[in-house]
Amino acid sequence: MLRPSRQHAGYWAFLLHRLSGLALAVFLPAHFLVLGLALERQAALDQFLHWTELAPVKLAETLLVCLLTLHLAGGLRLLALEFLPWTERHKALITAAFGVSLFGGLLFLLNTA
C-alpha cells in the first residue's frame, strides 16, 4: 500500500508515468526483434503476424497502445506544468492524460476489430 503522504493524484501520475516508461523500455527489444524478422525471415514474420490475430494478443496490444499514449500524454502534461504559465488545474490535466490514453486504446481496438 502507498504510504499516506503519497496518496494524491500527482503521485499516482508520477508512478504510472514511470511504470509505463519501464514497460515500454522492456517492450522495445521485442519490437526490434520482430522488425528484424521482417528483413530476414519472411515465413517467421508471417507466422508471427498470424499469432497477433489472436484475441488475447490483441488485448495485450491494446494495453501497449494505452501505455504508449499514457506516457506521451503524461510527458506533455509535465512539459506544460514546467514550461507554460502556472495552472492549479492539475487534477484536470491528470484526468485528461488518462482520458487520452483510454481513447487511444479504444481507437486501436475499433480499428483492428
Binding site: S5, H8, G10, A13
Partner: peptide, 10 residues
C-alpha cells in the same frame, strides 16, 4: 524535482 507535488499537498 519530479514535480509530483507532495510538498504542495502538505
Amino acid at each position: 524535482c519530479h514535480s509530483q507535488q507532495g510538498c504542495a499537498q502538505h
